[in-house]
């Protein structure tokens, strides 16, 4: 079990749940598939868009941060909203990445903290926030770009 209050899984299970949730959301709602390469999570490269952060509280506390590469946010928005990529504007791409963050965070927590009633914050820009507590990172290479994710569980002070 991890030390995060309300989390009922071992660290390797949390890591697997995060990956499964992200892949399921990408495939089901955005029609995006993995490209088959793997990538070590690293500091955000310049081509990545602004990070989006969702904080959660209730049975456990923490935050989920996601970054997608610039071209990928546009492809995801075009797929989600059934538009051509040229028709997608910046606010739409950013709303869609926010919804992506919300879904991956909610789907992961439903698995790792199944008995915790949690409230998720509205996704917002998350620059400059230092990770704390127990931290899980993952990175995906997809057919239309790259995703970096970070899930943190905070301990009660």
């Amino acid at each position: 079990m991890t030390d995060g209050v309300g989390v009922e899984c071992r660290p390797d299970q949390v890591q697997a749940a995060l990956r499964r949730a992200a892949v399921s959301v990408l495939e089901t709602m955005f029609f995006v598939s993995l490209a088959g390469e793997t990538e070590e999570p690293s500091e955000a490269a310049p081509e990545f868009g602004q990070p989006v952060r969702v904080e959660f509280q209730g049975g456990c506390q923490g935050a989920f941060t996601i970054r997608v590469s610039g071209s990928m946010s546009c492809s995801m928005a075009a797929n989600f909203l059934a538009k051509d990529e040229q028709e997608v504007d910046e606010p739409e791409a950013s709303q869609v990445v926010s919804e992506f963050a919300n879904m991956v965070c909610g789907a992961t927590l439903s698995v790792v903290a199944p008995h915790a009633t949690l409230n998720l914050s509205y996704p917002c820009a998350g620059t400059g926030v230092v990770a704390r507590g127990e931290v899980y990172r993952d990175a995906l290479v997809c057919d239309c770009g790259r995703v970096q994710m970070q899930l943190e569980f905070w301990h009660n002070e």
């Binding site: 919300n102 879904m103 965070c105 909610g106 789907a107 439903s110 199944p114 009633t117 949690l118 998720l120």
Partner: peptide, 12 residues
């Protein structure tokens, strides 16, 4: 329509 798939939230 929610991301929260926990049984207790659905039941509630």
């Amino acid at each position: 329509v929610s991301t929260d798939a926990t049984e207790q939230r659905v039941a509630a």
